[in-house]
Computed example of a mutant assay.
Amino acid sequence: MTERQLTSAEIDQYQQDGVVCVRNAVDTKWIQQLTEFGQHQLDHPSQLCNDNDSDKDSQQGRMFTDRYLWRTNELIYRYAKESGCARLAAQAMQSKSSRFYFDHLLIKKANTSAPTPWHQDVPYWPFRGRQIASIWLALTPVTVKGSALEFVRGSHNDRVFYLPEAFGTSGANAGWTGKGEGVPCPDIEADRDSFDVIGFDLEPGDALIFSAWTLHGAQGNLSSDQDRFALSTRWLGDDAIWDPRPGTDPSVNADEVRVQPGEHPTDNAIFPEFYRMG
């Protein structure tokens, strides 16, 4: 497969809406490998997992995440480096480069009613800048009712900083959310008609590229037979600066990095540069 490039229309949509749906974003060779890896992590989670496992026998009601797996797993490292996602992120952000921040495995088993709360990503992370984005890759077919992401179109341009919401309490470093700066996120579900909410049904290999400033969330997985597997990678563009303020994710902390607050994260051991425009 020829490596995917964003069209000018896709770049314009990202810039305008804060999100773009990219069909056939990566080579299909990655999908089976990553799906099998996701199942492995369900059975062998890392210390940074968050696992709402309400029924260990049937797996129903299970909302599972795991992250920073690239540090120890060769497949996730190769996917981040070789899949072309670094280039896609840079193109969407209109950045000359993209540095990898972390990977995030996101699984909702069938018949899991728990939603992903509405939030924006940037308040959780020790960075500031407009050129910060995620690429959410579908590993299984997913509909909006099956817990595909939804977005408030254009909310990345509101420049509002929302208080991080807690997603769960299991796993290492639990409980750090809800302590940072920002205003409470609006109750979008209580008044959806007042917001320009958009969502996308996806096939394996399709991806959503969205700004860290865009409000987004997901319904529960109401499917009775289809699990939702996705892998999100997070990317830092030219204007991202290291900002380890209180209340941000402590998984990467000031003791590990060789950059000072306010500096671009030019630390290739922690934030490897996987793309630079030639």
Rank of each mutant, 00 (worst) to 15 (best):
D55A: 10
D57S: 11
L163H: 04
D201Y: 06
D255P: 01
N50T: 11
W30I: 06
A86G: 14
A190K: 08
A110L: 02
P123S: 12
D103F: 01
L105F: 07
F271T: 11
L42A: 09
C49L: 02
P184T: 05
A110M: 06
M93R: 02
L137E: 05
T65L: 06
D238G: 01
R4D: 00
Q13T: 07
G220E: 05
P141N: 13
W235P: 08
F64V: 09
E3A: 09
E150K: 07
L139C: 08
C21L: 14
E273K: 12
D158H: 11
A269F: 03
W242K: 13
N50Q: 13
I270T: 12
A90M: 08
W242F: 05
K179W: 00
I135T: 05
P117Q: 06
I209A: 01
A166S: 15
T143R: 07
R228Q: 04
P244S: 13
P265V: 02
P123K: 04
S232L: 14
A172Q: 15
S98G: 07
K56L: 06
W136K: 07
A166C: 06
G217R: 03
D103G: 03
T143M: 12
Q39W: 01
P204N: 10
F100A: 04
T169D: 12
W176H: 12
M277C: 11
H40T: 13
N173Y: 00
I11Y: 09
Y162W: 06
V160M: 05
N50F: 00
P184Y: 00
S147K: 07
M63E: 10
W125P: 07
D201P: 07
C49M: 13
N50P: 00
A89K: 08
N157G: 11
W242P: 10
T2Q: 13
T177W: 00
T169K: 11
V160T: 11
T72M: 12
V122R: 06
Q32P: 02
A133K: 07
D55F: 05
K96T: 13
A25Y: 14
D267R: 08
I107E: 04
S194L: 06
R276H: 14
A166D: 12
A92H: 10
D255A: 15
S58F: 00
F271S: 05
D55W: 09
Q32E: 15
P186A: 13
N157Y: 06
I107F: 05
Y79V: 07
R67C: 12
L208K: 02
K56Q: 10
F274C: 04
D27Q: 07
E36A: 11
P115H: 09
G217P: 05
E273R: 15
I270M: 09
S98Y: 14
P126Q: 10
Y77A: 15
R276P: 00
K29Y: 09
Q60K: 14
E256L: 14
S58L: 04
R78Q: 15
F195G: 03
D43P: 02
P261T: 12
Q13C: 09
D27L: 04
G154N: 11
F274G: 03
V252H: 05
D193L: 05
G146Y: 02
Q226R: 12
D158V: 03
I241R: 15
A92Q: 06
V26F: 11
G217D: 02
V197F: 15
L48T: 14
S147H: 05
Y162I: 10
D206P: 09
V257M: 05
